[in-house]
Design a protein around this nucleic acid. Structure first.
Lengths: 139, 139
DNA sequence: TCTTAACTTGGACTTTGTCCAAGTCAACAC
DNA sequence: GTGTTGACTTGGACAAAGTCCAAGTTAAGA
């Protein structure tokens, strides 16, 4: 994700150790971490990093479109580093596992003009729900 | 929504003044209220109703499928009394307004078997995002 | 009318996230 | 290399949303 660091520098961001670590954490595991999970992993590499900085950095990355914010359950938001490839999410109702998925076609096409109520519609997020293989084979 | 009260009684629920008021509030305005908004409106009719009871009742209604929980931003969950008609949501990124919408086709059909990763997929929630007419005609 | 389990209450507590004043430091200029 | 400066970070206080619990209340059946 050094290219991400380059892009940030290109935007005039100061490249601090803290921002570097947050970027590394997001890059390291391609999962959907909560802010607190990002903080926990960041602390392993930079013990003095504060929660506030992790929140700030995640918020900034979301703002510039480098990371997606996923709010699926009313609990903690999750941060998805896969922002440059359009995708949707499949979530296990049993254990909460999240997978990136790629449905066919353009979701926006399914919404007729008459159902847009004058809105300028710009995007669609789909959350598929179900049970993962492990949770399916278990009461 | 007296039929809702009947259905609840049919399930063995005790029909208390508090539950009646929460049901009335949800029935009265067909909007997507937060728990606190439901509480505020409930208090107007039954001043001593507590927040805990509103949360309990909403949670129970969601559990039995009479009301839908909508968690679209990482803020407060919203409660949608329109649970018996399949629909999706269109949200204004400017002011947060929410509309029920009805896209064409079955959202599940767009997810190929190869993209299900062994999950037993049971549903899909779509959140369309855009700007409402008022927010479109305003910087 | 009595009984009792179910329901409600208020407040304490948790989780998630935001805000701020004070201190630190990356990057630029020299 | 050194100095300067404004952007960045910190820790702690605060806020919003929601959960939990012991004690009190009450709907509904006997």
């Amino acid at each position: 994700m050094s290219d991400l660091l380059e892009r940030l520098r290109g935007r005039g961001w100061r490249l601090t150790a803290q921002r570097r670590v947050v970027a590394e954490v997001l890059d390291g595991e391609h999962v959907h971490l909560t802010a607190d999970e990002v903080h926990a992993r960041a602390v392993e590499r930079l013990p003095e990093i504060s929660r506030a900085t992790v929140y700030n950095t995640l918020g900034e990355l979301v703002c510039i479109g480098e990371v997606l914010e996923v709010a699926t359950d009313g609990r903690a938001k999750r941060y998805d580093p896969n922002a440059h490839h359009a995708h949707q999410h499949l979530i296990c109702s049993g254990c909460g596992a999240i997978r990136d998925v790629h449905p066919l076609g353009d979701p926006l096409a399914a919404l007729p003009e008459a159902e847009r109520f004058g809105f300028t519609v710009s995007g669609a997020e789909i959350t598929y729900r179900g049970l993962c293989p492990q949770c399916t084979n278990r009461p």
